[in-house]
C-alpha cells in the first residue's frame, strides 16, 4: 500500500507531462517502423553495436590464436619436438583457404573496431564542452571502463609491432624454412625464439597483454550488454566469465615470450 501511494504521488506530480503525452499519442504517426541500416548504425546505440559485435568477434579470434600458439609448449614436454607441433599448427592455419578468407574478415573487423572506437571516443568527448572543476573520477565507475580508448591505443601500438615481428615476415618478407616429412614450412618457432631473445620485446609484449586484460575486463561484459543481454543471471555469469577471460587469456599470451626468454622452451 505504501509503495502504491508513493506511485500515485509520483504520477500526480507528473500529471501534466503524462496528460500531454496521451494527447500526443492520439495524433501520433503510424505504428509501423521504417528504418534504414544507415539509421541503425549511425545512431548512438548502433555505434555501440558495431563495437560490441566486432569486439565479440575479436574475443573468439583470441581463443583460436591462443590455442594455436599454446602448441609451442609441446616443446617443453616432448624432448624431440623442437617446435614441430607449433610450426605445423601455424602452417595449417596459414595454408587453409577458408582460414585465409577469414583472415580478411579479421582485418576488416579489427579496423572497423579501431576506427569506430576512435570515432566513438571523439563523439562522446564532444558532448561536454565545459568540464567539471571536480571530477567524478572513480566514485561510480572503474578507471579502465573510462579508459577504453587509451587502452585500445596501447593495444594498437603493440599490434603494429607484433605484425612487424611475425605477420609481415610470414606473409611478405619471408621466414627461414624447415622440413617435416618432406613438407616445407615456415619455422615460426625459430622466429619466435630469436625475437624473444631481447628483453625490451618481452617487456613490451607483457605490457601489451596487460592493456588487453584491462580492455577485456570492461569490454567482455559490456559487449554482451550492448547486444541486449539484460537478464541478471546472464549478466552476473558473463561478468564473472569476462573477468576470468581478461585474466587467463592475457596471462597465457604473456607467458609465451616469458618462457621463451627464460629458455624453458627449446
Amino acid at each position: 500500500m505504501l509503495i502504491w501511494n508513493r506511485a500515485k504521488i509520483l504520477y500526480i506530480k507528473k500529471i501534466n507531462w503524462h496528460l500531454c503525452l496521451i494527447f500526443a499519442a492520439i495524433s501520433s504517426q503510424p505504428i509501423l517502423t521504417s528504418m534504414t541500416w544507415k539509421q541503425v548504425f549511425s545512431s548512438s546505440i548502433g555505434r555501440k553495436l558495431t563495437m560490441g559485435l566486432t569486439g565479440i568477434f575479436l574475443i573468439t579470434f583470441l581463443i583460436v590464436h591462443m590455442g594455436i600458439n599454446a602448441c609451442m609448449w609441446a616443446a617443453v614436454y616432448f624432448k624431440d619436438d623442437h617446435g614441430e607441433m607449433f610450426n605445423k599448427a601455424a602452417n595449417f592455419m596459414g595454408s587453409m583457404v577458408v582460414i585465409r578468407i577469414i583472415e580478411f574478415g579479421l582485418f576488416f573487423f579489427i579496423f572497423l573496431h579501431i576506427i569506430q572506437g576512435y570515432m566513438l571516443t571523439v563523439y562522446n568527448r564532444s558532448k561536454r564542452a565545459v568540464g567539471y572543476a571536480v571530477d567524478y573520477g572513480s566514485k561510480g565507475s572503474k578507471w579502465y571502463s573510462r579508459s577504453m580508448g587509451l587502452l585500445g591505443t596501447l593495444i594498437l601500438l603493440f599490434l603494429i609491432i607484433h605484425w612487424l615481428h611475425f605477420w609481415i615476415p610470414s606473409r611478405f618478407t619471408g621466414v627461414e624454412e624447415v622440413e617435416y616429412n618432406g613438407v616445407k614450412m615456415h619455422n615460426m618457432f625459430a622466429l619466435m625464439q630469436t625475437t624473444f631473445q631481447q628483453l625490451w620485446v618481452v617487456i613490451l609484449y607483457v605490457l601489451g597483454c596487460i592493456s588487453l586484460g584491462y580492455h577485456l575486463a570492461h569490454g567482455f561484459q559490456s559487449a554482451f550488454k550492448t547486444i541486449g543481454v539484460h537478464n541478471k543471471r546472464y549478466q552476473t555469469m558473463l561478468t564473472g566469465l569476462g573477468y576470468a577471460f581478461a585474466i587467463v587469456v592475457p596471462f597465457v599470451f604473456a607467458m609465451m615470450p616469458i618462457t621463451m626468454y627464460l629458455g624453458w622452451v627449446k
Binding site: S44, I45, R47, K48, L120, Y123, N124, K127, R128, Y136, K139, G140, S141, K142, S145, R146, M148, H218, Q221, S222, F224, K225, T226, G228, V229, H230, N231, K232, Q235
Partner: peptide, 25 residues
C-alpha cells in the same frame, strides 16, 4: 547526448536506483 559505454557511473549516482540492466534491455 553521447553514446553509452556501460561504465556504470549513472547507476551509482541515480537517486532512484535505476538499474543499468535497463540499458541492456
Amino acid at each position: 547526448f553521447g553514446a553509452c559505454t556501460n561504465t556504470g557511473a549513472c547507476e551509482a549516482t541515480c537517486p532512484k536506483d535505476i538499474s543499468l540492466s535497463n540499458i541492456a534491455r
